[in-house]
Amino acid sequence: MALIKSVRGFTPKIGENCYLADNATIIGDVTIGRDCSIWFNAVLRGDVNTIRIGDRVNIQDGSVLHTLYGKSVVEIGNDVSVGHNVTLHGARVDDCALIGMGSTLLDNVVVGEGAIVAAGALVLANTVIEPYTMWGGVPAHFIKKIDPQQSKDLNQRTANGYLMYADWFREEDSKQPSPRSRVNI
C-alpha cells in the first residue's frame, strides 16, 4: 500500500480510479485528479508547498515532485505523462505534455500544452516552453515545432497506455489474499 502522509495539517486528496503503487509516497498538500497512476518509488512531496495534478496523469517510477517553500508549486494539467526518474521541482506542465525519462525541470518552468521535453533534459528555472514544441539537452533548448495532432496522438496514446497498465495491477492486486490471510512458513 502506498505511503500517504499528512503534514502541517495537509492530507493528500486522491481522485477516483487512481492507481498508487505499493511504494509510492504522497505527502502533504497534494491533490491528484481522476484516473491517475503514481508508480513505484515515485515521491510527491507536498510538505513545503502545493502539488496539483489533473486527470489521467501518470507519474512514472522513481520520479520526484517537490516545491520551493513560499516560492514555487507543481501544477500538472490533464493527460500528462511524466517519465521514469523525472525531477519536477516547482514547475507547471500544461495539458497533453510529455516529460521524458530522466529529465529535470527546475522552479517556475512552464511547459506548454502538447510540448515534449526530451529524455535527460535539464530545463533551467524560469524557462517557458511554448506549446507544441520539443526541447532537449543540458541545458535544455528549443529543438523543433511539433504538429499539434501528432503531439496529441503520441501523448494521449502514452497516457492511455498507463491507464491500461494501472488496470493490470489493480486486477492482480484484487487476486492477492489480504495480508491477514497469508500464512508464514
Rank of each mutant, 00 (worst) to 15 (best):
G120Q: 12
R170C: 02
R56M: 00
V57W: 13
Q60M: 07
V111R: 13
S37D: 08
D35L: 00
G120W: 09
I143A: 04
T104E: 07
L122K: 11
V80K: 09
D147A: 13
G54V: 03
G62R: 14
S81D: 06
I27S: 02
G77A: 04
V30Y: 02
G46Q: 10
R52W: 06
G33F: 07
A140D: 09
K152T: 08
N155G: 09
L124D: 01
I53F: 05
R45Y: 02
D173C: 05
V111Y: 11
I32S: 09
Q149N: 11
L154I: 09
M101V: 15
V64H: 08
A24Y: 10
R92N: 04
V82D: 07
I185N: 14
L163K: 13
G54I: 00
I26C: 11
V109H: 13
V109L: 11
V138F: 01
N108K: 15
N17V: 04
A24K: 14
F10L: 10
G112K: 10
C36M: 10
L65V: 01
N126W: 03
P12G: 00
F40V: 03
N17G: 02
G70C: 08
L163D: 05
D153K: 14
P179W: 07
Y162C: 06
V7T: 15
T50D: 06
G46W: 06
L106N: 07
V43R: 09
I53R: 11
N108L: 09
P139Q: 04
N184G: 03
T25E: 07
N160M: 12
M101G: 07
Y69K: 14
G15I: 06
A21I: 03
